[in-house]
Design a protein around this nucleic acid. Structure first.
Length: 274
DNA sequence: TATTGAATAT
DNA sequence: CATATTCAAT
């Protein structure tokens, strides 16, 4: 291995949540929209959404409140589709109802960048990124949208370095105007800025599980975290078995900015620190 | 078909 | 402006 890889890896490891922190994550068996849709404070049985279905089946009956907010107002009535109460259930409210806006916290973005870095630009497409991130409640659309913006950001960064002489461009030199604050919170891997260098693609492809055993001279407790928490995983056998820390729980939060609107936002891992 | 990504909408 | 949604292309 190259030293860059090791340092990168060490860094990655340091960021891993401690085992204690990982514990509560087993909570969200039920996807945010579902919880939202039903407005369930304490979900007992999990109405399985397509993808989560398999995972949910294996899920231990641990459930903690998805909405830790003592939100007293139950302002939502469920505009569920007509009938369909036949027990077999044809209704999928989660699909119908709009979920709250996702707020990209620096931490969430960090995971995003890490995922993209691991995958390499080539494989960094929304679905794959989403899978690698393993953030509960995060959708492919969420990632796609963010990825689009991130690519713009990268393009801008490339633009400032090699200037062709465009005189009509002001923000390029200015770099971080305030829009980039989020993006600036996570360092951009060098390769991202160099599309012309095909060789230095992804550093760390994925850590073979065997590697965990091999790397004995360090104590990596969270290494096998995936095997302890197989749920939450989507369905994707052939793909990566990387060290990605388990999914984080989604927390609903009310945006106080617009009280009249009562808009809800989804805050993925609220713990803020980088 | 499902997914991507740019455009467009909120 | 940040995120969502739409939509043509793959």
């Amino acid at each position: 291995m190259r030293e860059e890889d090791s340092s990168w890896f060490s860094k990655w490891e340091e960021e891993l949540p401690s085992p204690e922190e990982l514990m509560p994550l087993s909570q969200s068996l039920i996807t945010p929209d579902l919880a939202l849709a039903f407005n369930i404070p304490n979900p007992h049985h999990t109405p399985p959404p397509p993808q989560a279905a398999a995972a949910a089946a294996a899920l231990p009956p641990q459930s903690t409140a998805i909405s830790s907010q003592p939100n007293s107002s139950a302002e939502f009535d469920s505009p569920e589709m007509s009938g369909a109460a036949g027990g077999g259930g044809g209704d999928e409210p989660a699909r119908t109802l709009k979920r709250p806006r996702l707020v990209w916290t620096p931490q969430l973005h960090k995971r995003f960048v890490d995922a993209v870095a691991h995958l390499g630009i080539k494989n960094a497409v929304p679905k794959t990124i989403m899978q690698l991130m393993s953030v509960d409640g995060l959708t492919r659309e969420n990632v796609a949208s963010h990825l689009q913006k991130y690519r713009l950001y990268l393009k801008r960064m490339q633009g400032i370095s090699s200037n062709g002489g465009g005189a009509s461009n002001s923000p390029a030199s200015g770099m971080d105007a305030a829009t980039d604050h989020l993006f600036a919170s996570s360092p951009v891997p060098a390769h991202f800025l160099h599309p012309g260098r095909p060789n230095s693609d992804h550093y760390l492809p994925f850590v073979p599980v065997a590697a965990a055993a091999a790397m004995q001279h360090h104590h990596h407790h969270q290494m096998a975290v995936f095997e302890q928490h197989p749920f939450l995983r989507q369905t994707q056998p052939p793909l990566q078995r990387m060290v990605v820390p388990p999914a984080y729980a989604a927390t609903e939060d009310l945006e106080s900015a617009t009280p009249a609107n009562g808009k809800k936002v989804l805050t993925l891992f609220p713990t803020g620190d980088d």
